[in-house]
Nucleic acid binder design. Structure first.
Lengths: 168, 168
DNA sequence: AATATCTTTCAATTTATTTTGAAAGTTCAG
DNA sequence: CTGAACTTTCAAAATAAATTGAAAGATATT
């Protein structure tokens, strides 16, 4: 396999993986491209490499910046903006966990808390089944949330070392 | 909030959460409905409750069974099939982790392994950046995979207890 | 073996998401 | 201030994904 083939396969694989995890294909591909670029790229270069439009490229890069995965880089004497991705994958993983926790887990916990306050006959089978499900989900989600919160505060080696000891 | 309102909100919340994690809204909603049903439901009942078509209902339930989240239940003297969901959320979480590991992580590890074998000039900046990224991702994914593999072999209390001790 | 009941399939349709590209907006050098 | 270089926006178009429903396929019942 030649470099160009490997590069395309990498970008393609990352894109496919992204779309099965709720990230748009293009967003994952731009991220992949920046991940393997030794130097920061301009909007123009990303557009050309991935054959996507200016508007799409701009919005995708903005999204990646919102996620804290890509950063603006200014080059001395250059008018245009360049972008680089965080290359340390453990940092990338931590950042994704942090954002998804904030965007998805926290709001759901709030809603579940409300649902438990439902009025009605506590003896009713259906009522009980709903409260049970909510209570059970809340408990698992809170524990997972706790674990993730701690995980992102450790560095990769500390975490993996600890887990290894724990599970051996 | 009345029971019916709470039920709808629960189903809606689960559906929304599902779609941001690569699961179709309907699949998550059917799962939610079965989660809070004290008794198994027939295809007909699910169709009616969620206002979805027969075909959609059938395929969605089949997918949920493929994921190991929903099971057929036969009622004595009844011709039609009934379905129930696993109610223990920790088991549900383990099952989802197990399936996603098999469906998504394992194939990606294989592809990454191939990519590292790329031919070409090892001194080239671009070549090196790609190999570095792949190596780095592989290392993080393998460690996460290892941790998840162990996690699904523990029960909820053992895992949470261990994590708590670990992180305190 | 004919009928009734229930399940599955899949082409057509609908709905949702992503992408485009031209126009408007911004910024900066001269 | 003006114009060139670059960025952002967003309505329309293209694409992808989910859904429908009628027909075909099973399977049990009489």
């Amino acid at each position: 396999m030649k470099y160009n083939e490997a590069k395309d396969k990498f970008i393609h694989t990352w894109g496919t993986l992204g779309s099965s995890w709720g990230i748009s294909r293009t967003m994952a591909q731009v991220h992949a491209l920046l991940l393997i670029s030794p130097d920061p790229l301009s909007t123009e270069e990303v557009m050309e490499e991935l054959k996507i439009s200016r508007g799409n490229c701009n919005m995708t890069i903005r999204d990646l910046m919102d996620w804290g995965l890509v950063f603006k880089e200014l080059k001395a004497g250059e008018r245009r903006e360049f972008f680089r991705a965080e290359k340390d994958i453990w940092k990338v993983a931590k950042q994704i966990i942090k954002e998804r926790r904030k965007r998805e887990i926290e709001p759901v916990l709030g809603i579940l808390e409300d649902l438990k306050k439902m009025e009605g006959n506590k003896g009713d089978k259906k009522h009980k089944a709903l409260v049970d499900a909510v209570t059970n989900i809340e408990s698992v989600v809170e524990k997972a949330d706790f674990a993730l919160d701690r995980a992102i505060k450790l560095d990769e080696n500390a975490l993996v070392g600890a887990l290894f000891k724990l599970f051996k």
